[in-house]
Design a protein around this nucleic acid. Structure first.
Length: 271
DNA sequence: ATGGTCGGCAACCGA
């Protein structure tokens, strides 16, 4: 059985529901994970997704800010949300797929939205950056984000860190810019290592090839300047990473009308 | 060196 999973920071699911529908019709993933839905659960456009063939939705939303959702053709066994840093921000939702989805071996999927961290890369001066660092530390130590040797698990989402040199347009010019400072990159890599996760995107597009999923709204011409960053990630447990057969970054979505500043990442796994 | 643009939701905050 082939499972296709997409992740996309949509920057308001209600404003961009037509773009999500366009992407779904073109790509037909089994599961699409969204971040920055900016939508309380009782306002989520679930009927539109049901009409598109996605009746199963695990939401963790709030008014105005943040918010994550897993939208699926296949039913879940379990749904779980966790708080980070003792805050009630909606930044995590996990689902388990199993027998009901036709999978013999259960597979857990974590959808995470890491805090952006503000502009000032000093945790003493900027509480938002301190929060981001604490969030990354918690990702490293959280037992529920640690994979077991034969476990099938996925961790994806907007992790708001571009950890490798060629995850940004200019490593040198980004060293003091939040999202690529050494301390954030070290903490994200430590969380990845501690959990036994494989960076699936980079196993398909190794360094030194550039790989981006986000381009600022502030650029005069995002495509011409191409000052991107890889802020969105797809990690797999070692047992699952061996089964991944494709990875696609839908760069063209950045050029759609009224786009998100992030583009979808889609991975296919032979289960 | 600086400011540039979005979305939510109704004055700025967060990105």
């Amino acid at each position: 059985m082939r499972l296709t999973v997409s992740t996309w920071n949509i920057n308001s699911v209600r404003l961009r529901i037509d773009l999500v529908a366009k992407f779904i019709k073109a790509t037909r993933p089994d599961i699409i994970c969204l971040q920055e839905t900016k939508c309380p659960d009782d306002r989520f456009p679930h009927k539109r997704f049901a009409r598109l063939g996605y009746p199963h939705i695990a939401m963790n939303g709030q008014k105005g800010y943040h918010g994550v959702a897993v939208i699926s053709r296949l039913p879940f066994e379990t749904v779980d949300t966790r708080p980070f840093c003792d805050k009630h921000d909606c930044r995590h939702v996990a689902v388990t797929l199993g027998e009901r989805a036709g999978l013999r071996d259960p597979t857990v999927l974590h959808n995470i939205y890491v805090p952006a961290g503000g502009d000032e890369p000093d945790p003493e001066l900027n509480p938002k950056f301190a929060h981001k660092l604490a969030f990354l530390d918690e990702m490293r130590v959280a037992p529920f984000l640690h994979t077991q040797p034969n476990e099938r698990a996925i961790l994806l989402g907007d992790l708001n860190v571009a950890p490798l040199e060629h995850d940004v347009w200019s490593h040198r010019q980004m060293l003091r810019v939040v999202s690529h400072t050494p301390i954030e990159c070290e903490k994200l890599n430590a969380a990845q290592d501690a959990g036994g996760w494989i960076d699936v995107m980079r196993s398909f597009v190794p360094e030194p090839e550039k790989l981006y999923t986000w381009w600022s709204y502030r650029a005069r011409d995002w495509a011409a300047s191409d000052r991107g960053r890889r802020l969105d990630h797809f990690w797999a447990s070692t047992a699952l990473a061996d089964r991944v057969t494709s990875m696609t970054v839908a760069r063209a979505a950045r050029g759609w009308t009224r786009p998100s500043d992030h583009v979808p990442v889609t991975v296919t796994v032979e289960m």
